[in-house]
Design a protein around this nucleic acid. Sequence first.
RNA 1: GGAGAGGUGGCAGAGUGGUUGAAUGCGGCGGUCUCGAAAACCGUUAUACCCGUUUCGGGUAUCGAGAGUUCGAAUCUCUCCCUCUCCGCCA
Length: 427
Amino acid sequence: MLDMKRIRENPEEIRRGIANKNERDRLDELLAFDARRREIIVEVESLKNTRNTVSQEIARLKKAGEDASGRIAEMRRVSDRIATLDAELRETERGIESIAWHIPNMPHPSVPIGRSSAENVEVRRWLPDGVLGLTAAAEGLLDHMELGRRLGILDFERGAKVSGSGFPLYTGKGASLERALINFMLDLHIEHHGYTEVFPPFLVNSAAMRGTGQLPKMQEDMYRCADEDLYLIPTAEVPITNIYRDEILSADELPISLCGYSACFRREAGSYGKQTKGFLRVHQFNKVEMVKFTTPDASYEALETLVRDAEDVLRALRIPYRVILLCTGDMSFASSKTYDIEVWSPGESAWLEASSCSCFEDFQARRANIRFRPTPKSKPEFVHTLNGSGLATSRLMVSLLENNQTREGSVVVPEPLRPYTHFDTIG
RNA sequence: GGAGAGGUGGCAGAGUGGUUGAAUGCGGCGGUCUCGAAAACCGUUAUACCCGUUUCGGGUAUCGAGAGUUCGAAUCUCUCCCUCUCCGCCA
């Protein structure tokens, strides 16, 4: 959600932003609604002022035992007119909302302008020694599905039987490894990066979905309960960011850094034909999410820290990765600036997105109405929100299994995970 | 799922048709007092939107949400939502 005043005063700036984000431009329609809205307000509020004043007069007349029927008849006509105008005002505001909720966040000036992922910019990469397939020979390497099958740790067929394709089933040491990864990442962020852990609900209401920007635009991408106003979360960003919806925080509480585990559910409607095998694109996966609430002056510095916090996981596990700065056209609806972290998959000979770290400035805060008082006396302002995956396990698991496989077909568990798994190798 | 109670400002809590944006208390902020602090006392303290001669002034709305009755609704009526307690069921 953008500030209506900002749209009114800088329509061309907003128009550019919408175009750069490959979104539909309905600004002229919006501005017409906005002008009409203010026209109605001027008229209706002056009528209400009359009504309030005269109503008090009527009260005085009645108390004094005098006749007020003339004034009452007059006010009946005024009230009728008010009712008509109020109805039109509601209609106009509905029109404004139907457009305004679909206007994307504006990209930060540091974001490269581009139409697709081809114009994203690689910021840095980190490769441990002897990365398979990228700096060393790839022959004879197995991909994660083959490894999972041979080692008996992943069972995609039975997962599909139970739920459908895209619902992975982890078995034995695979399940333990998954759980170890989650706990390792949470502990790292809590103990070394200063986050407070939360364990959020996995179903949220529509107000929460609107708050972070999933609704109304992404309706088709989400699982929704038929009989209740509840959606399965596509990311823990939604419940965690909405923790402070409709609240006014005090400045000394900020920044707030939360992290939490959740399962994530995505319909991925319309993504058939893209990379869908194995773990590459699934309907349910696990993720540790980091969320920050900051003052407006601190948000972009916080974004850099957030990315580093996610990278630390990969460095500790010695997983090769690169950091990508997304161009305007590849960024999500709500984001001002996004870094993706991609891990190397020797099995696919491809980089896989395992994390997305974004600054939303006050876009989500406006929608979710999350504010803070800079000083105890000052007016509330919107906070800035950020979030990043730290990280999603499914593609991380792909990279972990494939990069740690031996020529004998077993997988070596990275040292930092062993206190959690209680085993060193699989197979 | 059944029965009951309740939703009012940052919090607690009055208020059952007419200067009630809302008593009172707590908290916050400013001040007096003090070497300083505490206590006490005094003052102040919601948010959003609209208009204008725009660090200021005026107006409108908001007492869970929506609709209705009325000249006028926190207050009366209806619908919905939420929270709590008890019972049932259940990990």
